[in-house]
């Protein structure tokens, strides 16, 4: 089970992800995040992986898809708080994080 909750202030939208991100849950997360992007039109989207217990490459697809959306709006995307195992996946996919 994966979940996402949001906070937004000004031009920034933060999505706090939790649980297990795989192909099954990524579809639902994508829809929820995209709906929130459409509602808030942020300049920066923060994806927080602090409470994600598992992620396979479906999570990379989720990140890259949202990065493209933010680019199209001339905005940016930041990945933060990734646990070590998820950093390993991000490194493999050459996705930057802080």
């Amino acid at each position: 089970m994966a979940k996402v909750s949001f906070t937004s202030s000004g031009d920034l939208l933060a999505a706090y992800l939790s649980g297990e991100i795989d192909h099954h849950s990524a579809q639902m997360l994508r829809q929820l995040i995209d709906a929130e992007i459409s509602a808030c039109m942020p300049m920066q989207l923060v994806l927080d992986f602090g409470n994600v217990s598992f992620m396979d490459s479906s999570g990379i697809g989720l990140i890259l898809g949202r990065a493209k959306r933010m680019q199209a709006m001339e905005g940016s995307l930041v990945v933060q708080q990734a646990p070590d195992q998820i950093k390993k996946m991000l490194d493999l996919a050459r996705v930057d994080y802080k």
Binding site: A26, R30, D56, S57, S58, I60, G61, L62, L64, G65, K68, K88, M89, L92, A93
Partner: peptide
């Protein structure tokens, strides 16, 4: 390609 990274086998090889 918008949603699938194409990394499945690369992850299996790496992990």
């Amino acid at each position: 390609p918008e949603e699938r990274a194409g990394l499945g086998f690369a992850v299996m090889q790496s992990f």
